[in-house]
Design a protein around this nucleic acid. Structure first.
Length: 678
DNA sequence: GCACCTCGAGTTCA
DNA sequence: CTCGAGGTGC
């Protein structure tokens, strides 16, 4: 089809344009049905061909693009993907880098002397996605996102090789599968050769290429990129007719293969940990010849029951580790070491590097964390150092190439005056009245310009006033419009619009964003204050415990320590904060300027307002499980018995806590009483 | 008192 | 992601 011919033929053009209208309607209808997770009235193949046809007409006559459904994704006009909650938390894995660490892991999980069998498989370097099937039909595809919410990339997922639109075998009610989207090295090479020829920017590496491609707004571009999907986990399977139960992860693999998924062929069940090492060596040798990039091997306990027992702790499951092959390392020169001042006053040394290309990006800075770290590494300014990217993102200085020294290197000295405000620097936490020496150095000036700046940024971030970034904040301060963040809430559009280079529209956006966030959740309010040692999690705990700012303001150190995971140091820091007049003035100013706190919505449940203390061992469940049950039902779990404790749940071999409960007259319940409460 | 785990705070680049 | 430090269980 040549465009010239059609453009010259008016009749043909008219025909195509009216044809486009029909196509648009059909495509929109399909997208709508699809979005509601209904069964669309046409097959995916037909849909595909409709899209292709319309796309072709659009390139011939761009005017057709107006209100075209191809300019949107998933049936709604949006420039981003919809966020959808995962059915489970998508965890990552704990990394190990040597056989020794693998053994450490094995010893740790084998405390009860269990002879686990293992399953090893490649860790493909791509993008983690989750696929949902209903009655064997693909209904949704999600990215990992933050682990809790993923992006709905259903349309794009259909364009990936190895993603079955329909599953083989018996019809199953619902099945959820997780796997990796990768770009094969060969495809990557071809695309880059092409990009180079046409003067377009090159793709950095296969992983970025895969993840960038999947997030394209146009599914047909995704198709062009020739991505591949490899499944590695069956997340859930629900079927009312047949109860299919698997014993091992390896059985799930076989099943996934049977119903039509592509799996990497290197997955292997291994009986002994020594054989795991052989497997690792073998893969390391072969891995360059694989069609896709790998960044390691996943070693996991094969038995699903054992996995349940071991559970998930922190960022990843205990029953699995990722054995990582050495990441790319390069050398560069430390040109200088500068010092940043954070909102808590901490001075952080940062290495300024001779820019180098590593793992797909150019790195010019790397944090050195603190003086101890610099001394441990024996770093000097002018040194040649080895760097790598931790987790493939954050540059990390690994060590010095001592042979490259020429004697001109200079030692780094922590400044005695704050680089921002020239106040004295101390090697202890100045936000706390504790005298213990710490690793970090602090600026002692509570009104330090750098600290203030960071605190302001923190405040607007926590209040989700994203329209105001650091630059605008600085500007408002310089122009004298604000002296502290409380002043933001009295700004009006005219104030901003008067500023140079400030559009009407952006002024309006900023003001409405501020107003939209005047009514704030209690935990955000607490977090935004920037109290030392009080981060997001602690703020949530405090908000749920005290419910109202008045209660928090009059709380004593021991009141606050009641909350689980808050001890003396943190509660003292909080009490000190509110004891300071300037802080109280600031809070009052916020209220005066219109900030209000939303009522804390308590998770309703039979245990709301009840504080439990657990002691001893339980028969039917672990303490961890009991705690989970209590929290799920709106209760709290504390670790000290006090007059505020509602119940002490005493299991076998309970100790001093039960006595303490007796002394204070707190109700003591046994495990069976607890179970009867549900 | 030690060994865990969790949290806070600072950080990089596209 | 990393490090340090606080909190808690044993």
């Amino acid at each position: 089809m040549k465009s010239k011919d059609f453009k010259e033929n008016k009749k043909e053009k008219d025909f195509l344009i009216s044809r486009a209208q029909v196509l648009k309607k059909q495509i929109s209808k399909y997208q709508e049905e699809y979005h509601k997770l209904d069964s669309p009235s046409v097959s995916d193949e037909v849909y595909d061909s409709l899209v292709r046809e319309l796309r072709e007409i659009e390139t011939l006559f761009p005017e057709v693009k107006k209100d075209s459904p191809l300019q949107k994704v998933g049936g709604s006009l949006k420039s981003s993907f919809e966020k959808v909650k995962h059915i489970d938390r998508v965890t990552s894995l704990n990394d190990v880098f040597s056989f020794e660490e693998v053994l450490d892991w094995q010893n740790k999980i084998s405390k009860n002397n269990k002879n686990y069998k293992y399953f090893c498989e490649l860790k493909l370097d791509g993008l983690n996605i989750t696929l949902f099937y209903k009655n064997n039909k693909l209904v949704r595809g999600l990215t990992r996102g933050d682990g809790f919410f993923g992006e709905d990339i259903t349309e794009n997922v259909k364009m990936i090789n190895g993603v079955p639109l329909f599953l083989d075998g018996d019809i199953l009610d619902e099945i959820v599968v997780r796997g990796e989207v990768v770009m094969h090295k060969e495809v990557f090479k071809k695309i880059n050769e092409n990009n180079k020829k046409e003067g377009r920017p090159l793709l950095a590496n296969t992983r970025n290429a895969a993840s960038g491609s999947v997030r394209q707004m146009d599914p047909l571009i995704v198709k062009d990129r020739q991505l591949n999907f490899y499944a590695w986990d069956l997340v859930s399977l629900k079927d009312s007719k047949k109860k299919i139960i698997f014993e091992n992860h390896s059985d799930e693999h076989l099943f996934l293969k049977q119903i039509g998924f592509t799996l990497d062929s290197h997955g292997k069940k291994i009986e002994k940990i020594e054989d795991v090492f052989d497997y690792l060596k073998d893969i390391e040798q072969k891995r360059d010849s694989f069609p896709y990039s790998t960044d390691g091997v996943v070693i996991a306990v094969d038995s699903l029951r054992d996995r349940d027992v071991l559970g998930i702790v922190g960022k990843g499951p205990k029953w699995s580790v990722a054995y990582k092959y050495q990441a790319e390392r390069v050398t560069t020169i430390i040109k200088d070491i500068i010092v940043n001042v954070g909102r808590s006053g901490v001075l952080t040394p940062v290495a300024i590097l001779e820019p180098v290309q590593i793992a797909g990006s150019v790195v010019s800075k790397a944090t050195l964390h603190n003086l101890d770290q610099i001394n441990r590494l024996d770093l000097k300014i002018g040194d040649t150092v080895i760097i790598q990217k931790a987790g493939d993102i954050i540059p990390e200085v690994l060590g010095v190439v001592v042979e490259m020294r020429n004697g001109k290197e200079k030692n780094f000295v922590m400044p005695e005056k704050c680089p921002a405000c020239f106040s004295a620097v101390e090697k202890k936490d100045t936000t706390n009245s504790q005298t213990k020496e710490q690793v970090a150095f602090y600026c002692t000036n509570k009104n330090c310009v750098a600290r203030n700046k960071r605190s302001f940024e923190h405040f607007v971030n926590v209040f989700e006033i994203y329209e105001i970034g650091p630059k605008i904040l600085e500007r408002l301060k310089d122009e004298g419009l604000i002296t502290d963040v409380a002043d933001l809430f009295t700004l009006d559009k005219v104030d901003l619009a008067d500023l140079e280079r400030f559009g009407d529209k952006s002024a309006e956006n900023i003001i409405s964003s501020i107003n939209n966030h005047k009514n704030i959740e209690f935990w955000r309010f607490i977090f935004a204050l920037g109290i030392a040692h009080v981060g997001e999690e602690t703020s949530r705990d405090i908000a749920n415990h005290f419910l109202k700012i008045e209660n928090l303001l009059k709380a004593t150190v021991s009141d606050i320590s009641e909350i689980e995971n808050i001890g003396n140091v943190v509660s003292r820091s909080i009490v000190n904060f509110f004891a300071e007049e300037s802080n109280i003035n600031f809070i009052n100013k916020l209220f005066k300027n219109g900030v209000t706190i939303k009522e804390v919505v308590k998770t309703k449940g039979i245990f709301s307002d009840k504080i439990f203390v657990l002691t001893g061992t339980l028969d039917t469940m672990s303490r961890e499980e009991a705690k989970k049950k209590i929290i799920e039902n709106g209760g709290k779990v504390s670790s000290f018995v006090s007059s505020k404790t509602s119940f002490v749940l005493a299991g076998k071999k309970s100790g001093s806590k039960e006595k303490e409960a007796e002394r204070l007259g707190v109700k003591i319940i046994k495990e069976e009483d607890f179970l009867n409460m549900f």
